[in-house]
Simulated assay, not measured.
Amino acid sequence: MTKVFFTSDHHFGHRAIIDYESRPFADTEQMNESMIAGWNEAVGQEDRVFHLGDFSFLDKEETSRILSRLNGYKTLILGNHDRGRSRSWWLDAGFQEVSENGIIYKEFFLITHEPLYMNRHMPYVNVHGHIHGQKYAGNNHFNVCVEHWNYKPVSFEALMDILASSQETDKNDHNPLSSES
């Protein structure tokens, strides 16, 4: 059965991100290899992965080598660090699909690189990257940056379980009967 995964902000080949985000790697080679291994542990060949931007700081040849080693059908939503390269550059490098804008997934999830403003009355969940180790509070945002997920893609099933659990907690917190015995 095909599974769907979300991830973002790998920054393959970006030395400075190790320091900026206190990543637990000695150098970019260790970081790249660890993230490739983590991706392939989680994602099967037939699975689909939405990468929500800032994939690689490497040239096309090196980026292509990494993409060829990663399992799954890969869709890239361009991040701020990806936009210096054309959509065709990313397709040539090995992504099967590339979107310059966000995507609406299953009519409920807004999948973007940067988090969007979502007030509590909006009926959507924004699945995003960009903010690395930071986290937005509330049920309307879901940060899939690698720093939150042990440098692996997170499955749609796991995302749904977490959202269901947080909505149940939120419902109980606002239910005046939930504190009665």
Rank of each mutant, 00 (worst) to 15 (best):
Q30M: 04
M31W: 04
M31N: 01
M31Y: 05
N32E: 04
E33Q: 15
M35P: 11
M35C: 12
N40A: 10
A42D: 08
A42R: 13
V43R: 08
G44R: 14
G44N: 15
Q45A: 15
D47C: 01
R48M: 12
R48F: 09
V49T: 09
V49E: 06
V49H: 01
D54T: 12
D54K: 14
D54P: 12
D54R: 14
F55W: 08
F55H: 09
S56C: 10
S56I: 08
F57D: 15
F57V: 14
D59N: 15
K60Q: 15
K60N: 09
E61L: 12
E61C: 08
E62S: 15
T63V: 10
T63N: 07
S64N: 15
I66H: 13
I66A: 11
L67K: 14
S68G: 14
R69L: 12
R69A: 14
L70R: 02
G72N: 07
Y73E: 13
Y73S: 10
K74S: 04
T75F: 03
T75K: 05
L76T: 05
I77P: 01
I77E: 00
L78R: 12
G79K: 02
D82R: 12
R83H: 10
R85L: 10
R85W: 08
R85Q: 12
S86F: 11
R87V: 15
S88C: 07
S88T: 14
W90I: 03
A93F: 00
G94I: 02
G94R: 08
G94Q: 05
E97Y: 11
E97G: 00
V98I: 03
V98F: 03
V98E: 06
V98G: 01
S99G: 02
S99Q: 02
N101D: 14
I103L: 11
I104L: 15
I104G: 07
Y105C: 11
E107V: 00
F108A: 09
F109E: 07
F109G: 07
L110M: 07
T112W: 05
H113K: 04
H113R: 04
H113P: 01
E114W: 04
P115N: 10
L116T: 10
N119T: 02
N119R: 08
N119E: 06
N119S: 12
R120C: 00
R120V: 06
H121Y: 08
M122I: 00
M122T: 05
P123N: 09
P123R: 05
P123T: 00
Y124T: 05
N126D: 12
V127S: 07
H128S: 11
H128Y: 13
G129S: 06
G129E: 08
H130M: 03
H130G: 03
H132I: 10
G133H: 08
Q134I: 03
Q134A: 15
Q134V: 08
Q134C: 04
Q134L: 13
K135Y: 09
A137V: 06
G138C: 05
G138D: 09
G138S: 07
N139I: 06
N139G: 10
N140V: 07
H141S: 04
F142L: 04
V144P: 03
V146D: 05
E147P: 01
E147Q: 03
E147K: 01
H148A: 03
N150F: 09
Y151K: 00
Y151A: 00
K152Y: 06
P153F: 13
P153Q: 12
V154L: 12
